[in-house]
Nucleic acid binder design. Structure first.
Lengths: 365, 365
DNA sequence: ATTACAGTTGTGTGCGCACACAAATTTATA
DNA sequence: TATAAATTTGTGTGCGCACACAACTGTAAT
């Protein structure tokens, strides 16, 4: 297996008794080569196991690919979006020498118009590729239609709009993540316990949440026919503490049998703190390894976190575009990231892995 | 953030009013530069945010780094070792253009002498770096002493020998993985149920197993003081089916209260099949996403699998050496891979993720 | 035979860098 | 002041490749 030092086009030329120009023509199918030499060169390529040196090629072409990302802006109340962003940055670092550059644009999760503005700005820039978290469905469709008109490839991360001409979707199987949450919930609750599905939502951020909740309820519908406890839903359309406290208190007083809460986004830490404050021993399952969630898990106030590799999502999105640019290879259309099950006993490995391997920092709030 | 097109040494030279030769001297600290120009160039580097183009550098240096890996040979009864190997191959693919080449050597898990032979062969080759799974401790120490004498960097994967001068250890926290298994076991068993720790072991393969079992027992020792069930250990020093069947049958007849089995290596599928055959409803926890384990999990005969990212281990090992070669950067000495908790509900995502993401194929034109 | 003109083939340049070597400058020595 | 020596600078070459262009071949039209 010890592959000898790499063969170059010069080697091919020598072997086939032609000049590197002819070799070049064969490699790039530029034609204008006599059938005889064509065959000889092709044989040389096979015989010498030629693989072009991407470094040299990139250097010679001097090409630059500009990727534009359009992701929600991370905020104090939602630092999740730092992670995909971090992943994109790292991915770009990996391919920096290959001429990949990224220009991050961010929109406000509570404001469609900021999405539109940023999308328009990106269009102006004439990107070579786009990474998009399409949380505003209508506006996203409008955006990608413009991209398609200009023949600009784009990948979705974190959420998907079905049936589009995106290069790839990289992110969780939303329905499956709900299903998994259901399974985990079932392992820590009795079948007579009541469960709360809790949506902290503001604005249009909820497009995917329905799918998640559906998966969650599906699990109990099919797998646990014997279940007698109730599954309720509470949607709190605010992230202000007083609103949340009030709504939760109202709910818990009315539903004292509640033994488990499934938070459908990354804000499990909020209810974890609430439970701690009022000394409620209620199980909590949520998403994403935010600093705040990690903290509450270690305190014992969150039982399960499901993580969907947000950093990898960013990495993979860049990689998909890179492969498309450089190798002209279309990636797999749907790439579901694993749903990691995080508990107190394995959380530290994920934390340090992110720090040392994927990047340098986890998000800070 | 839109970083302009990359600055080159020529840009620096122009900015500092010197020739690229002088810039080169500053960058490489070759000396022979007047303090005045030294400062000017340094300022240029900072001001123009210069980052050398690694591609061009590699191309110019024409360097080739030969990594030799020494891992156990995968067999029918133990296909686990295909995974780290695959990871190494992929890692090498990533850095192929940077002159990284890998030469895989494999030893027989049942035969120390094959380890020694291969180790010697590697020494002969004068490697630039070595990736080692040090399952034979004594022989490994002998090997790495020779490496150290020749100043050859090496990284451990999958298992570690403490207090050596290895560049890095990349793999699971063995004690922690036992601890995690304990936790998982506790969630699916009553505290009065008996548990079996099952070691399928042949030869010296068991060096790490003790650590794992220790972690497992530790969990029950500290966290579950109320536990009344027994924890027994059974070691089966064979992988022949008739031996295994006989030993297991002997054990189960003697210990009918057994409700859970923790298999300390990747061979959980063996006992899973046994349970299925004799219609025993006993919980099983094991390691690693082997095809056979995946199959048995889907059949419902394995409850939890703990995966330690064997493919990532290979990747990271190559990356660590690459960084060391090219950036002269020493990696973190201990890089624990996450312990992924695999259950029926999330296993498919891991399977397809490995296939699509890690399994790059070579492009051909 | 001369020119025109395709169809082939080979050569030169540059990408950004490292490094050997030549040139220019300053300093020491007679 | 001339000259050797030491120090500092600049230039040229090649890494492997892509691409523009120049230099060939052969054939058909005049």
């Amino acid at each position: 297996m010890s592959k000898a030092k790499k063969t170059t086009i010069q080697d091919l030329a020598d072997y086939a008794n032609v000049s590197i120009g002819t070799v070049d023509r064969v490699i790039h199918k530029r034609g204008k080569v006599s059938p005889t030499k064509q065959k000889k060169v092709e044989e040389a390529i096979k015989h010498l196991n030629f693989n072009p040196n991407l470094l040299a090629r990139t250097l010679a072409l001097g090409q630059q690919f500009n990727i534009y990302s359009l992701l929600p802006k991370a905020s104090n109340s939602n630092s999740y979006w730092n992670l995909p962003k971090q992943g994109v940055e790292e991915g770009v670092m990996n391919y920096r020498d290959y001429g990949i550059a990224c220009h991050p644009f961010e929109y406000d999760l509570l404001d469609e118009s900021s999405f539109i503005e940023n999308a328009d700005a990106i269009i102006q820039k004439n990107p070579d590729g786009v990474i998009l978290a399409p949380l505003f469905e209508k506006e996203s469709i409008n955006f990608i239609q413009k991209l398609e008109a200009k023949n600009i490839p784009y990948v979705f991360i974190d959420g998907i709009i079905p049936n589009q001409k995106n290069l790839s979707y990289i992110g969780p199987d939303l329905n499956g993540s709900g299903h998994l949450a259901g399974k985990l919930m079932s392992t820590i609750l009795d079948s007579s316990d009541d469960v709360l599905v809790l949506n902290f939502v503001k604005g249009l951020e909820n497009s995917h949440i329905n799918t998640i909740e559906k998966g969650f309820r599906e699990f109990f519908g099919t797998s646990q026919a014997t279940r007698t406890g109730k599954i309720n839903t509470l949607t709190i359309p605010s992230i202000k503490e007083e609103d949340i406290t009030r709504e939760l208190t109202k709910y818990y007083i009315k539903n004292p049998g509640t033994k488990g809460v499934f938070v459908t986004n990354s804000r499990a830490h909020i209810i974890a703190k609430y439970h701690a404050m009022y000394e409620l021993s209620i199980k909590v399952i949520g998403f994403d390894m935010l600093q705040a969630n990690i903290h509450e898990m270690k305190n014992g106030n969150i039982d399960y976190l499901i993580s969907q590799r947000p950093i990898s999502q960013g990495n993979m999105a860049v990689k998909a575009l890179f492969e498309y640019f450089v190798h002209k290879k279309s990636p797999i259309k749907i790439q579901h990231t694993p749903l990691d099950i995080i508990i107190k006993e394995n959380i530290d490995y994920y934390v340090s892995f992110n720090e040392t391997n994927d990047g340098d920092k986890i998000d800070k709030e």
